[in-house]
């Protein structure tokens, strides 16, 4: 019984860490216009829309965060092998990883913008200086919380995978959660506030992203503010639920039927979420869908 209470406590803490990780990851990637919103930021200058948005094309979010969390976990493991206190080891490993992330961010921005010289997109050095540091800070929070929850799984729950392997697995999961949940807020809504709501992105509007802000010209910190309000918390809830439910089913049901209990509960959870998703989709289409009858559309 004590074991189960301890396990549930660790599960709750890992879920909380994961929520913070998801929120920080999404804000970081949106400030850098990483993931699918990147295509429009890359396209805009080619369509004649010069902008002051940060274009940090490193990779998709899942490989990028798989990399950062694996590097952070590997460095932490190296420090632990050197008899450094585990908490200090995690902090040191993640700090060095944030430096690596920052270097990748600067080279990606400089490279992409310099290769757009033909269309007259300038390199804005102030954008590089002010955005990179902000993304590094958010990346540190996301990496540190994710590597910490991996450490909890390994050290407290006795997960058989070594720390770097857990790092890459949960890093990819974190990137996928942020990419799938948080990006639509930025890529489908924030970039196209000048288009009719729910209209999608017509070909004629491709690259015509919003470039001017409430006051002055929009930069990626404005997008970070927007993401912190909507996309970030949504990604946090998503990744937090993934980590919490995954550990919850393992801790509680693994002793049932030589491990089959956890697998059956996992399948049941997938079914429950499929039903919830379907219900929400149908409800949203009925409530907001603008495409009910073609005759209603004024041309």
């Amino acid at each position: 019984m004590e074991n189960i209470v301890f396990g549930i406590g660790i599960t709750a803490m890992a879920g909380a860490l994961a929520s913070v990780a998801g929120a920080a990851e999404n804000v970081e990637s949106d400030i850098g216009s990483q993931g699918d919103p990147n295509s429009q930021v890359q396209l805009a200058p080619q369509m004649g829309y010069i902008h002051r948005i940060f274009n940090k094309a490193i990779a998709g979010e899942p490989p990028a965060y798989g990399a950062w969390c694996a590097i952070g976990a590997g460095l932490a493991m190296g420090f632990i092998a050197l008899q450094v206190n585990p908490i200090l080891a995690l902090i040191l490993g993640c700090a060095i990883t944030a430096f690596v992330q920052g270097v990748y961010a600067t080279t990606a921005y400089l490279g992409r913008i310099a290769s757009l010289a033909k269309f007259g997109q300038p390199v804005y050095i102030d954008i590089l200086k002010s955005m990179t540091t902000v993304t590094m800070a958010h990346a540190f929070v996301a990496i540190f919380t994710t590597v910490s929850l991996c450490y909890l799984m390994n050290a407290a729950l006795g997960h058989p995978f070594p720390l770097p392997l857990l790092g890459i697995v949960w890093g990819i999961a974190l990137g996928a959660a942020g990419s799938a949940t948080g990006n639509p807020f930025y890529g489908k809504e924030r970039q196209y506030q000048n288009q009719k709501f729910g209209a999608g992105v017509p070909v004629a509007a491709s690259g015509n992203i919003v470039r001017y802000a409430e006051a002055g010209q929009r930069n990626s910190l404005d997008n970070g503010w927007f993401s912190a309000k909507l996309g970030g918390p949504a990604s946090g809830v998503c990744f937090g639920l993934i980590v919490f439910l995954e550990l919850w089913r393992t801790v509680l049901f693994e002793p049932v039927g030589h491990g089959w209990g956890a697998i059956i509960v996992g399948v049941l959870l997938i079914l429950v979420f499929t039903i919830i998703d379907r219900y929400i989709e149908v409800w949203a289409r009925k409530t907001y869908g603008p495409y009910a009858k073609p005759a209603e559309v004024k041309t």
């Binding site: 890359q42 990779a59 990399a67 070594p162």
Partner: peptide, 25 residues
Amino acid sequence: ASFIVVVFILGAMAIQHPFNATLGP
């Protein structure tokens, strides 16, 4: 201790990044 995972991902990022970051007209 799976340090080979770190080597794998460091290399995979380093091989794709140069072209991915500098592509364009």
